[in-house]
Design a binder for these strands. Structure first.
Lengths: 120, 120
DNA sequence: ATACAATACTTAGTAAAACAAAGTATCAGA
DNA sequence: TCTGATACTTTGTTTTACTAAGTATTGTAT
């Protein structure tokens, strides 16, 4: 089935933003680390490409859910190290996460309710 | 929060097609009836507009998941009655539904797994 | 009878998000 | 030296839900 791929992709819409927020709420991190952490946390099921993750981070920052600071592992910015942008969740971000988690759970329960019927 | 609306909308991506398939698998129906049935089955949470549902039906038919026949409640086509297009699930549609349900459940479990962590 | 709501289908255009693909650059190990 | 992992960016494509408008019939309340 080729439609399988397409279906799985659509399911992620909106959810990825929530999950990235969830990971950052646990611990600040830079983009690439988030890809690795999400892959690990999902048992390999969610393996984002950079072209997917970074736009999510830019969006979250623009919405005021996270903030970023350029960093370098040894404290010297841009000297012999790849510059990394470290993201931290804001209070607004934590509020959004709580709200989205609530909405997600309600939605998932609703879907199960419809799926689990024998009548229409 | 204005983003709440947007978030809830994104969650539906892909899922609506599966749910419509589920309703039709239980019993053939025409478009408008599906809107009413989905609203009832979801406790009012999923209230589709015609502009949302009908394109889903056209898509499902094009994919071979459902078939349609024009009908009239008293058997006389187009005579004194609003013509209705009745949809029925095909074998391919039932297979797609089973597969999508499996993928959805796996995905939902995966999301919960990431949400429910205290580490990253 | 007349207006209005509900039923029933259609279509054009918009917005949002995941992804593919390409590019840039550093660093570690074979 | 060359490859792969790390790290960030941007452009364009695809899919899907939704808005908004249109057409037409049926039933109900004024």
């Amino acid at each position: 089935m080729p439609g399988e791929e397409r279906f799985a992709r659509q399911l992620k819409k909106g959810v990825l933003e929530m999950l990235v927020l969830r990971l950052l709420a646990a611990q600040p991190a830079h983009g690439y680390a988030l890809i690795v952490r999400l892959r690990a946390a999902s048992g390999g099921q969610l393996d984002l490409k950079e072209g997917t993750l970074y736009p999510i981070l830019y969006r979250l920052e623009e919405e005021g859910c996270i903030t970023s600071t350029w960093d370098s592992p040894d404290g010297r910015a841009g000297v012999g190290k790849v510059p990394r942008r470290v993201y931290t969740v804001t209070d607004a971000g934590r509020a959004a996460l709580a709200q989205q988690t609530e909405i997600w759970r309600q939605f998932a329960a609703c879907v199960e309710q419809v799926l689990g019927r024998d009548d229409g």
